[in-house]
Structure formats: structure tokens, C-alpha cells
Amino acid sequence: MVDSLSLKSEVAAPAPAPAPKRGRGRPRPTVRSRREAWTAHLFLAPWFLGLFLITVGPIVASLYLSFTDYSLLDEAKWVGLDNYVKMFTEDPRFWASLKVTTIYVVVSVPLQLGFALALALLLDRGLRGLSFYRSIYYLPSLLGGSVAIAILWRKIFGADGLVNAVLALFGIQGTSYVNNPDTALGTLILLHVWTFGAPMVIFLAGLRQIPSSYYEAASIDGAGAVQQFRSVTLPLLTPIIFFNLVLEVIKSFQSFTQSFIVSNGTGGPSDSTLFYTLYLYSKGFKEYEMGYASAMAWVLVIIIAGLTGVNFLASKYWVFYGDSK
């Protein structure tokens, strides 16, 4: 989908867009245009209503709740910054969940992107049946967050699962990987890496954007495949890598389903798969501390915003936009 679009844009010569009139201000609204605006607003209204009632309302409410002691079962009591103070000073599980999530993000995102890029490069070599492979590899991205796959994962990495069945052929006796604190997080990382399809498709589109004349010029100058990859492909692909990186960091920081299902909602064994969002959920709905859970949600927002900000700042040093230099 994505790259067929981009192919088109490459083929079609940039149409001379009608130059917009600048500076002189907008034409005065006529009665008709005003009526049209009203109609537009009317059509948008149901969506806005949904946005405010279901999204913005609860978001603002959760900010208020984050300053309260709220059990769900009785009234919220204002406690000021207590939840935040408690989180940072006397809750070891908060730090444990942050650590687990950070390891998960730091390990799985680069692995996943590396894998996606490698496969995109492979598929880009004019393989026959490209669209078939593309669909096959994209499939896990659609399924990866689902409950069914998480259950499948339990089976594959269980004591009598597929992995151990294969190992048994070589006389190795494995353990239950999802129930072993040393390996449980690893199985979840593997699950995330497996969903490399989405970034792969975006990489493929990016690779198609690189004009073949660059490669021709490079090979005339005597650059080999490796040199071409390092000096042409990679720099021109950095905006795409950056895009994928930002997206995947945000997404994987919010991972929930995998850990929830694979660990039966406990984050176990012994908190080794306690994702931040899973802890937040269990605080809010299982331990009757919705105020605390709300505070955790806001800390997560700040963490993700901070990371994204850092990502953007750092991008100045490594992301190459062909037209800006």
C-alpha cells in the first residue's frame, strides 16, 4: 500500500500547484460559505462529542484524580502531591516496572528495526512475488498485539511447548520459558521483534524513494555494495529510520496485552514481566488505588513526551533530510 503510493508520486511529475495568494488575508466570508462552515461543524459534531466525552474528558479527569486518594468505591479525597511522592520515594514496584519496561524498549526496538531493515533490503532486490512476501511478513504486525498470539506464545514457550519439543530432538531438556524469571521477558521481546512487518513496509517505501541514479553514480565511482549501503542507502533512509524509531518507542512503552496475557495479569514470575501499564492497571482496578494509577499514567505521559523530545533533539545530529543540506 504505502510504497505503491510513493511509487506513483515518483512517477508523476510534481504538478505545478496553483500558487496560493499570500499576505492579503482571507476573502471575507460570504453568507454561503458561513452556512457551509456550519454544515461542516454539524457533521463533525458527533466526532467532537465523542472526542470530548470519551477522550479529553477522562484525560482531564485523570489529571484531577492523580492528586487524590480514589478507591473507585468511595469519593475521591484530595491529597495533593502524595501519589507522586509515594511513587518516587517508597514504591519499589514502580521502579521495578519502569526497569522492566525500559529493558523491553531498549532491547526490542533496535532489534525489531534492524530486522525490519534487513528484510526490507532483501525484499527490495527485485524478488519475485514481492507483494506476497510483504503481506506474509506484515501479518505478525496485525496479529502481534492480539490475545490469541499471546496465548500461542504461552504454548510455544511453555514446558511442553514447541521450543522444548525441538530442543528435545537434540537431547536438551528446557524449562518453561514464560514461567522462568530469567527468560520470561525475553519471550516478550521476541514477540515484539516478530512484529517487524509494519516498520519493514515503511522501510520498503523509503528504499523505493532513493533515486537509482545515486547508485549508478556510486558504482561508476567504484563503490561496492557495502559502501553503497553505508554512503547512499543509510543516509537517505535516516528520516524513515527516525520515524520508525519514534513510533516504536512510543508504542512499546505502552505495551500491555502481551504481558497481561502471558503472565496471567500478574506481571510474574516475580515481577519479571511487570510492564509499566500492567502495574498501572493492577493498581487502578485490582488494588483500588485509582488516584495512584492516574498519577502513574501522567508520569508515563511525561516520560514518553520526554523521550520523544530527546529523540527529536538528537535527530539533528544523525537524520539527513536530502533537501535541507
Binding site: 511453555g158 514446558a159 524449562t175
Partner: peptide
Amino acid sequence: PDAAKMAEIAA
């Protein structure tokens, strides 16, 4: 059974 296997059975 060991801890990991037992956890699996319990679940």
C-alpha cells in the same frame, strides 16, 4: 516439579 513448571501447572 520445579518452580517454572509448577507455575505453569498452577496457571
